[in-house]
Write a protein that binds this DNA or RNA. Structure first.
Length: 213
DNA sequence: GAGTTGATCACT
DNA sequence: GTGATCAACTCT
């Protein structure tokens, strides 16, 4: 059995808007194992969320909304939950976040890695890679926030998109057992002083599509 | 370890 | 408006 078949999971339609109405940490744990679906003229892609990070608003030095900073970029984080917050990093890569917490609380969850489920060749094409033949090749598709955004054709036009609506939405996947969830410090936030050490990154244990061990 | 470039911020 | 600095990353 190939890794694709072994990890195949059916997803239903989009979650309801109410799915997003819960505190950030609870939301993060619900999103782990959920499925991100992207419908596009050049193909359907879907992947299971296997790694993410919480960014928790005004008190979190690593968050764009630290100190209540509200700019054109961070605006959507201040709105109601369930919308996409997409920003450009290093002038090159887009990162996809799910806005969480109630309106006025600028919190979000960064989607850091997906396990590809559907549309592998579409993802490979967008990433300008040959079709992967092994798990280790396939991890290059979607292991990392910049990579998955590219593979799913997510750019700034998706900023503010409601994630309970096609063509870009969350669907509930299989639940992840609590003992299969690992947590630790977030990645690449060396500037964030004490917040560097907060264990606000979650991933599925031993999943090869996590961006780093 | 270097590259890359739009967004942000501290100024005019 | 302008210019300097920065950055929740990726690839070699």
């Amino acid at each position: 059995m190939s890794w694709r078949e072994a990890n195949a999971v059916d997803w239903g339609g989009p979650v309801s808007r109410a799915f997003f109405e819960r505190p950030t940490e609870e939301m993060a744990l619900r999103l782990l194992g959920a499925v991100l679906v992207r419908e596009s003229a050049d193909g359907l892609t879907a992947g299971r969320i296997v790694e993410l990070e919480m960014y928790r608003g005004p008190g979190d030095k690593a968050a764009h909304s630290f100190g209540g900073r509200r700019t054109a970029r961070t605006q959507v984080m201040f709105g109601p939950p369930g919308y996409a917050y997409v920003y450009l990093i290093y002038g090159m890569y887009y990162c996809l976040n799910v806005v969480t917490a109630a309106e006025g609380s600028p919190e979000a969850v960064l989607i850091r890695a997906l396990e590809p489920l559907t549309g592998i060749s579409v993802m490979a094409g967008r990433r300008q890679m040959a079709e992967p033949r092994t798990v280790s090749e396939a991890t290059r598709l979607t292991a990392g926030p910049g990579r998955l955004a590219r593979a799913f054709a997510i750019d700034k036009t998706a900023n503010g998109h409601p994630l309970w609506r096609p063509p870009l939405y969350i669907a509930e996947g299989g639940a992840v057992e609590p003992q299969s969830v690992a947590r630790g410090p977030r990645v690449n936030i060396g500037y964030a002083e004490e917040a560097r050490d907060y264990p606000w990154r979650f991933w599925i244990k031993d999943n090869p599509f996590v961006s780093r061990p």
